[in-house]
């Protein structure tokens, strides 16, 4: 009898550990986070009051928050553009490589193995020790010091470090996408006299659209929620020029005693991600070969 009961409920039991863990550490956390965003809690005191939407109203009027959103937007746009263009070029190059393809692939995937913290610290040193040498050699005033110390160049420098690592996985995904194009189509295109560019435009590209969507979604989310690189390289400075929303949330929660406010910032980030993902999925369904 007992074994019959077990057999009938196996599927249900299979879902239980996942559902319990996910509910406690994910769904409940989301719920609590949204709840905190309507309070005035500083994160330490024993009690707090519900204050309605006042955190959101404050954020709307807070120039630092707007500045942080703009920085985050710039960061995301540069990251997405850099990652998409470079990984597509690299995938096309690697895919057509005959000799040494395995070697080249393993070199290009190497950055994905290393932690963002280590990569950031290495580049921090390179910016301090190598960039001034270039600045002096070519007499470029902007390069006399590490770009990370310069409010105008710090953001680009952080994004470059992020791109250095973030290109690896999309490249691999693009190569997989390229290998899904049937080679007969290239043959047909060649017989019809299509140019290299037209073969890319009309044969390769439609097959790549699903992969482009996947890579875009991942890159945009990575750009908007980025934290590790800027936190390790600049901590948000100089003069807040790299103060992405991820850092603002972290600092408000753990340093500025604005825990509830930080939750409101995170909820706004949530809404932005949800809207962008929705739009992308809609757009991604429109064209391409599936």
């Amino acid at each position: 009898m007992a074994s019959k009961f077990l057999e009938r409920s196996t599927y249900f039991l299979f879902t239980l550990p996942a559902v319990i863990l996910y509910t406690l550490f994910f769904a409940y956390a989301v719920f609590v986070g949204i709840q905190y965003s309507f309070t005035d809690w500083n994160g330490i005191s024993s009690g707090y009051n519900y204050v309605g939407f006042s955190n959101y109203v404050d954020l709307w009027n807070n120039p630092n928050f707007k500045q942080s959103l703009i920085v985050t937007g710039q960061y995301a746009i540069m990251l997405v553009a850099g990652v998409m263009i470079l990984s597509l070029i690299l995938a096309l190059s690697l895919n057509s490589l005959k000799k040494l393809q395995t070697f080249a692939k393993s070199v290009y995937f190497l950055p994905a193995m290393i932690s963002a913290v280590t990569i950031s610290l290495i580049w921090d040193q390179l910016f301090v020790r190598v960039v001034p040498l270039i600045g002096e050699a070519f007499d470029i005033a902007a390069f006399y010091q590490s770009p990370l110390a310069h409010p105008k160049y710090a953001l680009i420098a952080v994004v470059i470090v992020n791109i250095w690592q973030a290109v690896a996985l999309p490249t691999l995904i693009f190569i997989a996408g390229l290998q899904s194009v049937p080679s007969e189509l290239y043959e047909a295109g060649r017989i019809d006299g299509a140019s290299t560019f037209n073969r890319f435009r009309y044969i390769t590209f439609p097959f790549l659209i699903p992969t482009i969507t996947v890579n875009m979604v991942l890159a945009i989310k990575a750009g908007i929620t980025s934290f590790d690189y800027a936190y390790t390289l600049t901590g948000g400075g100089p003069v807040k020029s790299t103060n992405v929303i991820g850092i603002m949330i972290y600092n408000d929660a753990f340093q500025n005693l604005r825990f509830a406010m930080a939750n409101a910032e995170a909820v706004i980030l949530f809404v932005i991600i949800a809207v962008l993902s929705f739009v992308q999925i809609k757009l991604g369904r429109k064209g391409g070969v599936h």
Binding site: A18, Y22, L24, F25, F26, Y28, A29, V30, V32, G33, I34, Y36, G43, K221, I224, T225, F227, I245, G246, I249, A253, F259, A262, N263, E265, A266, V267, L269, F270, I273, A274, S277
Partner: peptide, 19 residues
């Protein structure tokens, strides 16, 4: 479970520290 794809980590990170 799939809804989690749309939730940025920052939303859960602060409550998680408390939990």
């Amino acid at each position: 479970i799939l809804l989690g794809l749309f939730v940025p980590f920052q939303v859960i990170m602060l409550p998680l520290t408390k939990i």
